[in-house]
Design a protein around this nucleic acid. Structure first.
Length: 865
RNA sequence: GCCGGGGUGGCGGAAUGGCAGACGCGACGGACUUAAAAUCCGUUGAACCUCAAGGUUCGUGCGGGUUCGAGUCCCGCCCCCGGCACCA
């Protein structure tokens, strides 16, 4: 144990605060090997110890009878895909740190966890591995739950929610029935994503960006099936509003764009001459001002009028085109590089504004699901129409003149506002005014009106798959579609269904499930065999956490009233237009039914970034996944938690790097040694800090006063950073504090000083949210009662934070030329005098001084000619 | 194409319009060690001047502007990442 005497002179240059100890008389001290003195920091051991103690003492159990203010902090629950990967840690660990912080700040914090457990991956795994989806899922849940425990989070596991459990999906079904009662569900034929190889319908998420089946790579086609929808479009306008929500601008914008409200007009074109029941083709347009420029009509290939209007000589070609369009997949569409296709169907419609007869075409750029499924073709003022017209020689009629336009042909569609021409009585009007004028005119004459159209479609919730919540409906040959009575819920998912892909819902072939009696007439009937989209399950799970065992309804209203809405919701931005939109719709619908009394569930939303590796997203196929378990076993959960936070700003994500973890591990070791290493051995030459010691700037150095100042500055910084999710800079501040304390300890006998004790206690308390196990262990070892996580978070005293001096930066023409330490109380006049009397400055000010700018407490800038 | 978010040392990243590069990694030098690891101390944006103490110039993707002063604000571009993309 070779203790060495050293000359103190060369060790007194400390870095923080800037040269704090410079100028102190430095007696020689004894160096020693701390590691040899002290028990080693052993993360796996202490983490296991505290995790089990926290659990035994139910440290994180939450209740509703608290006199503290409530705070509901929620992290998006994970899908039960197998195990918790580093991305989950990145989402969960910092959120847990924040929840712990708020707990210590005195809030009654609900920070629950659960599992999104229904869905296709389980079923696919089942098919691949010949294992039941339930078995596969529950095995994953168990594994993920175990992994969550190693993270050391504050989750109250009594509140766990697993969406595939009958206790849960019973209420998913109940909510379906409520939506049904409210008229928010309907059944309609709709195209589904169909993989002809797997013989199955795919969810949108199962179709790759290239329009292929995620599993086998076959191009997905569309197949019409009777499906259930939720009328989310009824809430389109409200979903675009985010009043009172503290959400990222990006998400709000994405949702607004997704809903895609367009204002315009619905205009009717006459087809009376064909003697059909339908006398008109209705179109939606945002440009009623261009109605005089219509030179053709376009119907979506699937439009019901196509069959009725097609003249016999065009029938074969039209059928062919329609069939091709139906089969067309996204990939084919993209590969055609926007080449316009279309076909004249041998019929005409009349533009009632000018009496012109225009040919009716079909083209795949007209979508049945948007607007009215029909478009008026105005080639001069819509690029798609323009391309079709050019391709097939349809006339192009300019009705909105660009500036300085003198009748020449257009190179491309002119889509900007202009002056109306070739528009009868409307000639000469600015086109923007013409919009209203023309709609008003049409309205008077009964063939047009103002209209709004949305990009948002109703939510297709049917899945022709096994592993989901059964839709609680019965098909009765006599009574039609009849809802299952509430008392008969849940409609249990049968365990023994054959879930191999056959192209139809697996439940269809499960006779004991299908065959039932009609709840209305009591005669034999069949159950609905589709299951619900998993997004239905996740649209209300945050309500269930309030009272997960409640069996009188989806939640206990009293407890819901206590906890909801969620104060802080964190998760990935990828859910902006799916889960978050669905959940908002659900809550608005429940509000309108009087089931809840609020219309938004997530007051503040925060999106963390993604963690990548090798500049790429982590994925099993790339082989770049980081398995957190190995790192936890080696370095500990505390190091993992801290490292993930230290990578960079939470909202930006970042790259995983093993070396970064090393730095954190070293730091945690330094904390361990700082707090625990015995100091008695270091006795030679060691004396009390010179409490009245004067630094070179007349400032006291290495004193209790300074120690307390640094302590309180750190407390302030950590509080403010945690408040704003600035975990990386919070850790940097704690590292600086640790470094400062370690140096102080080395030169002064600080052990028994109250300021030192305050500093170490504060350090541990500030560390508690980020590295809960280490903080708890050191808290115990420094003689405090269990548990540090019941302690209040340190609060700074502003008067202790204040510096007595500051470094005045002296600039000449904006360039730093000198610095001097001055008391904070210095007046501007004194600054001027001091600065101008300095030799260095005098020497450099060679020209007349124009101005002197003094920024209080910071710098002075001498402006010379 | 449209909508977001970015571009700062060798790397991850700090900086209410006021000392650019905190904190960490890496690298280099030193202490300890038979040696290595670990640990500790120091140096570390670039170029230049100086025996030295120290000093000068340049520097936050590019080009302009505002300002006493710009990584930060304004205008015009370039590049990277993410999302949306025939929505009439």
């Amino acid at each position: 144990m070779g203790a060495t005497l050293e000359n103190r002179e060369d060790k007194c240059t400390l870095t923080w605060p800037a040269s704090s100890f410079a100028g102190l008389p430095c007696p020689p001290i004894l160096r020693y090997n701390q590691r040899a003195m002290t028990e080693k920091y052993n993360p796996p051991e202490i983490e296991k110890k505290w995790q089990s103690r926290w659990e035994k003492t139910r440290l994180y159990a939450t209740s509703e009878d608290s006199d503290r203010p409530k705070l509901y902090e929620l992290t998006m629950f994970p899908y039960t895909s197998g195990d918790l990967h580093i991305g989950h840690w990145y989402a969960m660990a910092p959120a847990d740190v924040h929840a712990r912080f708020m707990r210590m700040k005195g809030y009654n914090v609900l920070h629950p966890m659960g599992f999104d457990a229904f869905g296709l991956p389980a079923e696919n795994a089942a098919i691949d591995r010949d294992i039941h989806p339930h078995t596969w899922t529950m095995k994953n849940v168990e594994n993920m739950r175990r992994q969550f425990h190693t993270m050391g989070a504050v989750y109250d596991w009594d509140r766990e929610v697993v969406t595939c459990s009958p206790d849960y999906y019973r209420w998913t079904q109940w909510l379906f029935l409520k939506l049904h009662e409210a008229g928010l569900t309907y059944r309609a034929k709709a195209p589904a994503n169909w993989c002809s190889r797997c013989q199955t319908v795919l969810a949108n998420e199962q179709v790759t960006a290239e329009g292929r089946c995620e599993r086998c790579g076959t191009a997905v086609i569309r197949k019409d099936l009777e499906q259930w929808f939720f009328r989310i479009t009824r809430y389109a306008d409200e979903l675009m509003q985010h009043e009172g929500l503290d959400w990222p601008e990006q998400v709000k914008t994405m949702q607004r764009n997704w809903v895609g409200r367009s204002e315009g007009a619905e205009i009717s074109f006459s087809i009376e001459e064909y003697g059909l029941d339908e006398k008109e083709i209705r179109v939606f347009t945002t440009r009623p001002d261009t109605t005089y420029g219509v030179t053709f009509m376009v119907l979506a290939p699937e439009h019901p009028l196509v069959e009725k209007l097609t003249s016999p000589e065009y029938k074969d070609r039209v059928d062919d085109y329609v069939n091709r369009a139906r089969r067309q997949s996204e990939i084919e569409r993209l590969s055609t590089e926007r080449e316009r296709t279309g076909l004249f169907i041998g019929a005409y419609a009349t533009n009632r504004l000018n009496g012109e007869k225009v040919p009716i075409w079909i083209a795949d750029y007209a979508l049945l699901s948007y607007g009215t499924g029909a478009v008026m073709g105005v080639p001069a003022h819509d690029q798609r129409d323009f391309e079709l017209a050019k391709e097939f020689g349809i006339p192009i009629k300019v009705v909105v003149a660009p500036d300085r336009w003198s009748g020449e042909e257009l190179e491309e569609a002119y889509e900007e506002p202009g002056t109306m021409v070739n528009s009868g009585p409307f000639d000469g009007q600015p086109s923007e005014e013409g919009k209203d004028a023309i709609v008003a005119f049409m309205e008077e004459n009964g063939y047009g009106k103002k209209a709004v159209s949305y990009r948002l479609r109703d939510w297709l919730i049917s899945r022709q798959r096994y592993w989901g919540a059964p839709i609680p409906m019965v098909h009765c040959p006599r009574c039609g579609i009849v809802p299952v009575p509430e008392k008969d819920l849940p409609v249990l998912l049968p365990e023994d269904a054959e879930f191999k892909p056959t192209g139809e819902s697996p439940l269809k072939y499960c006779e004991p499930f299908v065959n039932t009696t009609c709840p209305r007439c009591g005669k034999p009937a069949q159950r609905e065999t589709d299951t619900m989209d998993t997004f239905v399950c996740s649209s209300w799970y945050f309500l269930r956490y309030c009272s997960p065992q409640h069996d009188d309804g989806p939640f206990d209203p009293q407890r819901l009233k206590y906890w909801l809405p969620v104060d802080l919701y964190t998760g990935g931005v990828e859910h902006a237009t799916m889960h978050l939109l669905y959940a908002r719709f659900f809550i608005k619908a429940l509000r309108d039914m009087g089931i809840v009394d609020f219309g938004e569930s997530f007051i503040k939303l925060f999106n963390q970034g993604k963690i990548i590796r090798g500049r790429q997203k982590m994925s099993k196929s790339r082989g770049n996944v980081v398995n957190p378990d190995e790192y936890v076993a080696e370095s500990g959960a505390d190091a993992m938690r801290a490292y993930l936070m230290f990578i960079g700003p939470w909202e930006q994500g970042g790259e995983w790097n093993d070396n970064g973890l090393i730095g954190i591990t070293r730091w945690l070791n330094r904390i361990w040694n700082l707090v625990l290493a015995e100091t008695e051995i270091v006795s030679v030459g060691r004396g009390p800090c010179p409490d009245t010691g004067e630094g070179h700037g007349g400032r006291t150095r290495g004193t209790d006063k300074e120690l307390r100042r640094v302590t309180h500055q750190t407390i302030k910084k950590v509080n403010q950073d945690l408040e704003r999710f600035h975990f990386n800079t919070m850790l940097a501040a704690l590292m600086e504090f640790t470094n400062y304390l370690a140096r102080l300890k080395e030169i002064c006998a600080v052990k028994d000083s109250p300021a030192w004790k305050e500093a170490i206690d504060a350090l541990l308390l500030l560390l508690a949210p980020a590295v809960p196990h280490l903080a708890e262990e050191l808290w115990e070892r420094t003689g405090h009662p269990y548990s540090i996580h019941h302690q209040p978070f340190p609060v700074w005293q502003e008067e202790l934070v204040a510096e007595e001096e500051f470094t005045l930066v002296i600039q000449i023409n904006g360039k730093v030329r000198d610095k001097v330490s001055v008391p904070v109380s210095i007046s501007e006049a004194e600054v001027r005098e001091l600065v101008l009397s300095r030799e260095r400055i005098k020497a450099q000010v060679r020209h007349p001084i124009v101005r002197v700018i003094y920024v209080t407490g910071r710098l002075v800038n001498i402006v010379v000619k």
